[in-house]
Design a binder for these strands. Structure first.
Lengths: 396, 396
DNA sequence: GCTAGTTTGTTGGGCGCCCCAACTAATTGC
DNA sequence: GCAATTAGTTGGGGCGCCCAACAAACTAGC
């Protein structure tokens, strides 16, 4: 078992990181620990370079000695979120509180380049972020990838990238001059879920599914307030749920998969767009924004397509609700800006196929973080790990 | 946070309860605690009436002072598992180690009787078990019910029982002369999963789904070694997964539900039996055993029915595997004895619809506990709670 | 049969870490 | 300026862990 001290150090640190600067007295009240204990814990955290006394003296118009707030040490460790996607790379560096220090988004055709080169380029971006952040060593780096992840930190399969068995974590660690304490790889939908959990539509929820509409359809599953990866790390393959067992064949080998019937290509085709238009180097936000505009303009074919896709999604969401009974389903990726039109058909299917006669309630909400969800989730996941492990690491 | 002492008391108690009698030295080795600490913990547990020194002196042909084993105090608290099903009631009492002390199975048409009477009858059975177990107060009682459970211990809906909003926990507590510390209600499929987890095919697994084939099809979901209930306690409604969105209407309001296509009635109908035959007061094992016999005899129609139902189940299992990536799916209820014939078509669907191109692995196994799964799970769940909470309760 | 060797369990002391009580510190209100 | 109030620190007590030494109970070998 983690020592009591470590546990309490984490408790205090997380409180300050997540709820902002606060006095020792407040911390004592909030954690239920004794004032003196909190003082000692805070002293240790200051010593470890994680916290510092707030210089800004706020004068509360209140009787009594004014509190001395402590806050995260701006010179303290920070966290790196990285993303490799089909046509761009992204970096995001924050401190332990999640305050942005540096970010970059670089268009980069990663299908054309060799995986080693792509990771090298990503490492360059990371080093750049390090410089901007003052050259200090990041405590954690997490890489979002559009594919399935090995338990040991490799990228197993990324169909849209054309990558198979690329040891991303290993390559990145090797490419960085000062590799952070923890380097991990995670599926972009999983990270989208984590991002929404920490700073998006999933704040305060403990069980939800984040559906990511990119080129494919993925999902991140959050159960009991934590990302659920499954036994081999492949949970959340929502796109390959069978919707119609006798439907059209899907690239995965199955038939009538959700992705095939309601994925980007199907959606665009139903709405009357040639899916290949997408290849014109458009931003990832493109399909959602465009379809939303078209729907707002009242184009019948678009509205019909959205209704159709909504019903299909609804069948999948109902399956998911039947199995997991989540509090909400968050529509991310290009589905987010289309929620307005998708919600009704989804909820209709949900109602008939899952909720009928039960006290279950499963809300359908738009995700809030758009195309930044994956990088933000990468940061958030690193931050979580760091906040749960940082004190012993630094105190050592 | 639970105090360190409580945590360690639980650690030692669980070790003895789950792994059998052992010496203080062994416990120290296994828990990583110091010998002296273990001695003190054991003393406290003996004092609380939970453990005792083993009277049976085993002479190990080994040099050194012979160890003094401690074991669960046979006079210690015990646990009650109860079951209300459509046509029977069942009770099972064990000690904290799970050693059976008393059990009873009583045919009882619970559809005909008023819920209050049924619970009163169940309470009588429980009192009887108490007598047989020496009249001591049980520490926990868990009731398995064939329906959806309210978060506050009521039975929300039990379609096959015709019950709606019956406060079972409350009624039972009121009906018992010495109500146990904890009384809870749980869905039978959920408890089946817990039973398989503790003493069945799920031992040692941390993520699996137990599929219960009774009159309907339910499922219990075990994630990270614990029963997963979902946000409102309705997780695992596997039977109402949509398999064919344009399939035949189901009683739940949906269309093409798994239960409708592969439930007991469909299975029997496909195999050429009139489903109404089942009403002849048959034992719950009936459909599985009979169909297995028929399949073993090589009846073409039965084999075809099993293959068909297997494929249908396989589509559902594939959905489940895509979402949850479990280590295994356990086939329970009447599916268990039919696993031999169901596995191939299920695995075929699983392969094409979920596992293709992934390193995922999801075994399809027969459940081991048959029709006793639910009561056994009721006991097991109570036992788990007791073993995690017993020390403080008794030490007080 | 006696002694050395081995393993088990207990006793006494030390220490980490939490809590409590008393105290100092810094402010407002009268 | 003096109570009242709130914040943070200091010293002491106690819980509960670990360590070391010891006592207990056995086997092995001479």
């Amino acid at each position: 078992m983690r020592s009591v001290r470590e546990h309490n150090l984490g408790l205090v640190l997380r409180r300050v990181a997540e709820e902002g600067p606060r006095s020792r007295a407040t911390l004592a009240l909030e954690t239920g620990l004794n004032k003196t204990t909190v003082s000692s814990l805070v002293a240790e955290l200051i010593d470890a370079g994680l916290l510092r006394d707030s210089p800004s003296e706020v004068r509360p118009a209140r009787v009594g000695r004014p509190p001395q707030s402590v806050e995260l040490d701006p010179e303290g460790p920070f966290v790196l979120g990285l993303e490799i996607n089909v046509d761009y790379l992204a970096v995001r560096a924050t401190d332990l509180a999640g305050v942005l220090r540096h970010h970059a988004f670089v268009a980069h055709d990663n299908r054309a380049a060799a995986p080693e080169e792509v990771v090298a380029e990503l490492a360059r971006l990371a080093e750049q972020a390090l410089e901007f952040a003052g050259g200090r060593q990041p405590i954690a780096a997490t890489v979002a990838v559009p594919g399935l992840v090995d338990p040991d930190g490799g990228l197993a399969v990324a169909p849209n990238l054309g990558w198979v068995d690329v040891p991303v974590a290993q390559l990145l660690t090797a490419a960085l001059a000062y590799p952070p304490y923890s380097v991990r790889i995670e599926n972009e939908a999983n990270l989208g879920a984590v991002a929404e959990l920490t700073e998006g539509a999933g704040r305060g929820l403990s069980d939800f599914v984040y559906v990511s509409g990119e080129i494919g359809i993925g999902a991140g599953v959050v159960l009991r307030g934590e990302l659920f990866r499954g036994a081999s790390g492949f949970a959340g393959e929502f796109g390959h749920l069978t919707i119609d067992p006798f439907g059209p064949p899907c690239g995965c080998g199955g038939r009538g998969c959700l992705e095939r019937l309601a994925g980007q290509e199907a959606l665009l085709r139903l709405a009357g767009w040639d899916a290949r238009v997408r290849c014109e180097g458009a931003r990832p936000e493109w399909p959602g924004a465009m379809l939303a505009e078209s729907a707002r303009a009242g184009h019948a074919r678009t509205l019909e397509a959205l209704s159709q896709v909504g019903r299909t999604l609804g069948i999948g969401v109902a399956s998911l609700a039947n199995l997991l009974d989540p509090e909400a389903v968050l529509l991310g990726g290009h589905f987010a800006p289309l929620t307005e039109w998708l919600r009704v058909p989804i909820e209709a299917e949900l109602e008939t196929r899952a909720l009928a006669g039960r006290r279950m309630r499963c809300r359908v909400l738009p995700a809030r973080l758009g195309s930044e969800a994956a990088v933000r989730g990468a940061v958030a996941l690193g931050r979580r790990t760091a906040l749960h492990n940082a004190p012993p690491l630094r105190a050592a």
